[in-house]
Write a protein that binds this DNA or RNA. Structure first.
Lengths: 196, 196
DNA sequence: AGCTAAAGGCTAATGACATTAGCTTGAGGA
DNA sequence: TCCTCAAGCTAATGTCATTAGCCTTTAGCT
């Protein structure tokens, strides 16, 4: 088999795949090099450091997540879009836990970091999904943070085997999405000014 | 100050404090040893390995979290208990991000692992808080997973500086809790498809 | 008091990694 | 044909975690 020429992109892809296999925390330069059939130092011809690799994987992950959500919500709206988008998100994380972990660890390195637009695209998708509920503008940001929190939390706990009870996790997820859908439909939740 | 004799417990406490300061991922045996005024290898007289240290920190974190929630929900019920418990949880994570991270990473090492009861105690607190809503038994586990997901997700995203927009994160949190409270109340009142 | 053993520190050595320096070789273009 | 550079490689360095083996202090006993 012709082993294609290595490029930063192909190395990143291989690194992402490896992270999904062995877990992000077990990804090492040595392991990736071995997987690619080269010696560890040779990796540095394609990627400047492990941090660079991790960052590239994060961008890849964010981009793919954005694609997955876009594809899933294509042509849908309202509750349908929410359900489809949320399911797509969870499915993506289940299929690519290593990438997702990389995405969670990464932080933009500067104002031109491609990670920023990639992340914004995902956030924009969530915002678009929420727009169908015609929330009060002042509540949109809160709803968005709530949505991100549940989805991220659920995906993270699931990935960490946090749901032990013998009750279908799939069922819990759809229940969760329904719960949120109903809440959003119920509309304005007047945040009490008396907090803390 | 007389430097008290080191014990596994005091080393763990110091490790937890250090993790909160520098971030769990930056916690190292060398750094902790330095903090304690001893050389790295001496740490092994109190803790068998870094993994052991991490595990002990996780148990401490879970226990403290359980205490915090118990104290906060003491004497409250229904929405009050939910609000108080959730706030206590977030506050604890904000104050102890390193410990919380350790708690998320840890996994029980066996059936007698003290981490198990510590974790169960926290879960029981959530369950107790939800019991006030008199949910359909079949929904309790889902509600519980939902609650854990939002709280964990929110705390995690906040710790990772995931909320960039210039809108009060405190406000978003109380909004979030209100949203859930309303949803749970609605579920209790109107019931779901399986209404009796 | 004197003796002993364990507790708790220390230094030195090992092994896994990431990273860097410098060498080598093959393929394409001048 | 010859030169240049991309992409591998080996060797060397530095950081950690961890282990081995040694030394000192101190509680407890006689």
């Amino acid at each position: 088999m012709p082993k294609a020429r290595l490029t930063p992109a192909s190395v990143t892809e291989a690194g992402a795949a490896l992270a999904d296999e062995v877990g992000y925390e077990n990804l090492s330069m040595g392991l990736l090099a071995e997987r690619l059939g080269i010696k560890t130092p040779s990796l540095y011809k394609h990627v400047t450091s492990q941090a660079d690799l991790a960052h590239r994987i994060a961008i890849l992950a964010m981009t793919e997540m954005g694609d997955a959500i876009r594809d899933a919500t294509q042509g849908r709206s309202g509750s349908d879009a929410l359900v489809a988008g949320a399911q797509a998100m969870r499915t993506h994380v289940r299929k690519h836990p290593g990438r997702y972990a990389a995405g969670n660890t990464a932080r933009p390195t500067g104002p031109d970091d491609p990670l920023i637009p990639a992340t914004e695209r995902v956030l924009a998708s969530w915002a678009a999904m929420l727009s169908g509920y015609r929330l009060d503008p002042g509540q949109q940001i809160h709803a968005m943070r709530m949505l991100r929190s549940v989805l991220h939390g659920f995906a993270t706990l699931e990935a960490a085997d946090g749901f032990q009870i013998d009750t279908s996790v799939d069922e819990s997820f759809t229940w969760l999405i329904n719960f949120i859908d109903h809440g959003l439909r119920a509309g304005a939740v007047t945040g009490s000014a008396t907090d803390r």
